[in-house]
């Protein structure tokens, strides 16, 4: 029976780990009695889901950049802000579409602005990777210094270009206002944000699980050296992921801008605190963990903001600590060599 031994030795396949997926529903249900009114609860929950999707979009690129190349990129915040601001460039030229009483033109305007935001952030990411990040691979302290420096410079440039005060980013007419579902007032744009978030998440899962590039990214997160030994140039892969991650930051940024209908030069930095919490909660390098983490963080922020506004940010720190006590490497730890 000798040589067949390892043929018959069945691997112990662990069951899929669904537990983290239950956390967001459990959190939402637990909040219901605390909030009291079901209508208010439904509104808060939808707000949390919409915000969660936007945070997820911003965080997903960052988690892959960290997972794949071990690069701590604090300048991710700059791409969020830059994406949002670049959308305002179209406010003048496309104001006819924005204000028009036509869903098609409105959606078109939104689409063009979102595309521009992603493209500008992607281009900035490409340049940033070449000039700033490349020389500091493998040196965390240097990465923190140069990317924080890059963030400060970018914020200054944005302030110089658009001014230090708030800039308006009005939503196209069709996406404003609410629809009533029973007694629950549902903001239209929140539904749009949830839809976009789900599409982005689905697309990322599809790419990561069904394409060669996706397999390479997952393999590279685990063991970049072995990917190179198979003949792939990991640097190119990394540039691609960095650019895509920056584009996602820009996309998340412009979506957030529309959500608030106002931009400030510090918006990216403010969001980055949540984004980093999400990346840590999710497990560095895990897109699925990032998605669950973003929903948890955003739901917590919304419930806490309603129940105890002063504790809103603190509540997320508590959430992070609780999750790390449960799973010290995040919800879905990624295998590392």
């Amino acid at each position: 029976m000798s040589a067949s031994l390892d043929t018959t030795l069945k691997p112990v396949v662990p069951p899929p780990d669904w537990l983290p997926l239950a956390l967001a529903p459990v959190l939402a249900l637990a909040a219901l009695p605390l909030v009291g009114s079901p209508a208010t609860w439904a509104t808060l929950t939808l707000a949390g889901l919409a915000m969660g999707m936007m945070i997820f979009i911003m965080a997903s690129g960052l988690t892959l950049i960290f997972g794949l190349m071990d690069v701590l990129n604090f300048a991710h915040a700059a791409f969020i802000t830059l994406g949002a601001y670049s959308a305002t460039l179209l406010l003048g030229p496309r104001s006819d579409w924005l204000g028009a009483d036509s869903l098609v033109l409105n959606a078109g305007a939104l689409l063009v602005m979102v595309a521009l935001a992603s493209a500008v952030a992607a281009a900035a990411g490409f340049a940033f990777e070449r000039v700033i990040v490349r020389p500091v691979y493998g040196r965390h302290l240097h990465q923190i210094l140069v990317t924080v420096g890059g963030l400060i410079v970018a914020q200054q440039l944005i302030t110089a270009a658009w001014g230090p005060v708030q800039v308006a980013l009005p939503l196209p007419a069709s996406f404003r206002g609410i629809v009533l579902v029973g007694e629950v007032a549902v903001e239209r744009y929140r539904l749009v944000a949830v839809a976009i978030g789900l599409v982005v998440f689905a697309a990322m899962l599809l790419v990561l699980n069904r394409t060669r590039i996706g397999l390479l990214i997952r393999a590279g997160v685990e063991n970049p050296e072995m990917v190179e030994a198979l003949g792939y140039r990991i640097r190119r892969l990394f540039v691609g992921v960095f650019v895509a991650g920056s584009a996602l930051a820009g996309l998340g940024g412009v979506m957030w801008g529309f959500y608030r209908e106002a931009l400030t030069p510090g918006m990216g930095l403010e969001l980055t605190v949540l984004v980093f919490i999400v990346v840590i909660i999710g497990g560095l390098g895990s897109v699925g963990g990032c998605f669950v983490g973003a929903l948890l963080v955003a739901l917590t922020a919304n419930y806490a903001g309603f129940l105890a506004p002063k504790l809103a940010l603190g509540s997320n720190i508590v959430l992070m600590v609780a999750i790390l006590l449960w799973r010290s490497r995040g919800l879905y730890p990624v295998a590392k060599r």
């Binding site: 393999a219 050296e225 030994a229 792939y232």
Partner: peptide, 22 residues
């Protein structure tokens, strides 16, 4: 390294280094 692999050298490391998630 990638050029060496493309040039015809393969490597089976001591640690095996299979991609465990794949």
């Amino acid at each position: 390294t990638p050029d060496l692999a493309r040039g015809g050298i393969a490597y089976v490391p001591e640690t095996m280094s299979v991609f465990s998630d794949l």
